[in-house]
Design a protein around this nucleic acid. Structure first.
Length: 549
RNA sequence: GCCCCCGUAGCUCAGUUGGAUAGAGCAACGGUUUCCUAAACCGUGUGCCGCAGGUUCAAUUCCUGCCGGGGGUACCA
């Protein structure tokens, strides 16, 4: 049992003993000040009114009623307005070091999710061009969310929804036709390139076998645009997969919108009809989403008979329901945030339990290079791709920058800072701590100094820096859980930063490999535990933990 | 108009389901290396937490209004 749970149990018992357990949540928090102990609860403050006593007296009563296990909690203090502060017994901190080393890659994992199936859908950018910067941010966040959920006992998988159907694919096909005519010199005078003027389509046009190309480019060939659309989509998707691989992001599944038309879409619409949320107006089929909080009703089938993107998306979510996910998280780009209400409304009508669908919006990313912002519109034909970002600053730096901030806030990505291979760059600070430990361990090996195995001399770890480090290591599992629960990967970055700082401070204050064999053994164990936790954190973030820099 | 996000140190941002004296990085200045990686460490300081109300024993955190910034509001995807 983890120490927080142990404390919780002990003090819930105490609350029962004084008759105050009902409707009382025992929140445990890390105090800001060291003088306030390792963990604290303001529970007495909250009880003051209900019990009609002053908080100090209540806190005293709780402490008196609690059977405090002194091998776990060294001291319990009641402070000023009515806080109860706990200080961990040193053996608990030391034992945790052994646990870290023995659990290794699994330290920090839990069964919080109870093995339930979860899906995270992210990026899902149209295969009408290479992935751009916002997609890179979504890739970082989505993949880490999958990692976090898996690590906390969920059966989580990541999926990419491929919009290979509809108007944009047709438009893409027409733009490719233009490029084919350009290639074969059959362009008509004044002909427009269409929706996708990016030069990448010229490359793709170059890859079309000549005989096919000439046929597809011929205006008298009816399905030329469709052929071109399919060809371009296929090649662009291959490029996207390559970019993702390079970025170190792996999907469990690619789901194709084209597989939803027409059958599954019709099925989904049938359900909406059966639930009486559908009506016809002006020749189009509408979803009465306004009855479920949406601003207005949304078109499912256009008056021309064609299903909308939204209809496909509903069918897609019906598929997710059918696949038995206990919950799904959709990570969307900032341009889609207006779609949340209608999609949730649809999920509800499809029979999804409340809260089943979570939608996260990834904030805009603006590339900054000094003062020069870079245009990123796909349609303008000029944009900064994910690939070029990776080539420029490297995937570790890119990921870390995306994971440093809350997902939904706008982000100025400073390329100049990201390029710097120096102390100004926060990624290297954390990686350096890992590399440094790795190096120390090698040095110890060369000196024949061995790490402590059984924990006999861990009581030698008595310095303030050593205690702070051990304490922080102990909080890792809670940080992981909180990050998973709140869907906030940036907490990992903050934790890693703090852990690196604590290690560097320890490193400067305490000589690890020394003449004192027992002390060296104990400190090596702590160094190794720190390295392990750094590695686990970085691994969850999908960032490399180098052994030398 | 309506809806969503944001407003915290000079800059970029944290701030733990409302808690005790609001923090970190960067930038600035000064210091530390015969010693396991100086990509490190130590020291020096700045905040009407956008404004005004409300709820509460307690508000940066929750509610309302306002101001400022960004975005959304297609029979496009």
């Amino acid at each position: 049992m983890r120490i927080q749970d142990e404390i919780r149990n002990v003090f819930m018992d105490a609350l029962r003993a004084i008759g105050a357990a009902e409707d009382t949540a025992l929140v445990l928090e890390q105090p800001k000040l060291k003088a306030h102990g390792d963990l604290a609860t303001p529970v007495a403050l909250g009880l003051a009114k209900r019990l009609g006593k002053n908080p100090m007296a209540i806190a005293e009563a709780i402490v008196k009623a609690a059977h405090v296990p002194h091998d776990v909690i060294a001291s319990v203090d009641v402070a000023k307005p009515g806080f109860i502060n706990f200080t961990f017994a040193p053996p608990v901190l030391r034992k945790n070091l052994l646990e870290i080393v023995s659990l290794a890659d699994r330290y920090g994992s839990s069964d919080m999710g109870g093995g339930r199936k979860w899906q995270v859908e992210y990026i899902s950018a149209n295969p009408t061009g290479p992935l751009v910067i916002v997609s890179a941010r979504a890739a970082a966040i989505g993949s880490v969310l999958v990692n976090l959920l898996s690590f906390t006992g969920h059966d989580a998988e990541g999926e990419y929804y491929v919009n290979d159907h509809g108007n944009q694919v047709d438009a893409l096909g027409r733009s490719l036709q233009y490029r084919l005519r350009e290639r074969f010199g059959t362009l008509s005078v004044g002909e427009e390139i269409g929706a996708y003027p990016g030069a990448y389509l010229r490359d793709i046009a170059g890859r079309v076998p000549e005989a096919d190309g000439r046929r597809w480019a011929d205006p008298s060939f009816d399905s030329g645009a469709a052929r071109c659309g399919a060809f371009a989509t296929e090649h662009l998707l291959a490029g996207i997969r390559g970019d993702l691989e390079r970025f170190g992001v792996r999907f469990d599944n690619f789901f194709f919108e084209s597989s939803l038309h027409p059958g599954p879409v019709e099925q989904a619409l049938e359900i909406l009809k059966r639930e009486e949320y559908v009506y016809e107006s002006e020749g189009a089929l509408f979803f009465a989403s306004s009855r479920l909080g949406d601003e207005k009703d949304r078109v499912l089938r256009k008056s021309g008979g064609e299903a909308t993107y939204f209809a496909g998306d509903i069918a897609y979510h019906l598929s997710k329901l059918g696949r038995g996910f206990g919950g799904v998280i959709d990570i969307w780009g900032p341009d889609h945030h207006g779609h949340i209400t209608r999609m949730k409304a649809a999920a509800q009508v499809l029979g999804a339990p409340p809260g089943w669908l979570e939608v996260m919006i990834v904030g805009w990313v603006r590339l900054v290079e000094g003062d020069k912002p870079v245009s990123m519109s796909k349609r303008a034909g000029e944009f900064v791709t994910m690939r070029s970002l990776i080539e420029d600053v490297g995937s570790d730096v890119a990921k870390y920058f995306f994971l440093m901030r809350r997902p939904n806030t706008p982000l100025d990505f400073d390329l100049e800072l990201a390029r710097k291979q120096s102390e100004e760059n926060p990624v290297f600070y954390v990686q350096y701590a890992h590399a440094r430990i790795s190096s120390v361990i090698k040095y110890a090996e060369s000196k024949g100094v061995r790490r402590e195995r059984g924990g006999e001399h861990l009581d030698l770890l008595a310095a303030g820096e050593e205690r702070s480090l051990m304490l922080h290591l102990m909080f890792f599992p809670y940080v992981v859980e909180a990050a998973a629960r709140s869907r906030e990967p940036h907490r990992l970055a903050a934790y890693a930063q703090e852990l690196a700082t604590l290690f560097h401070q320890f490193y400067h204050a305490c000589r690890i490999v020394s003449e004192d064999e027992r002390l060296s053994g104990a400190r090596l164990l702590m160094a190794e535990a720190t390295m392990q936790v750094l590695r686990n954190t970085l691994s969850l973030m999908g960032v490399a933990a180098p052994s030398s820099m």
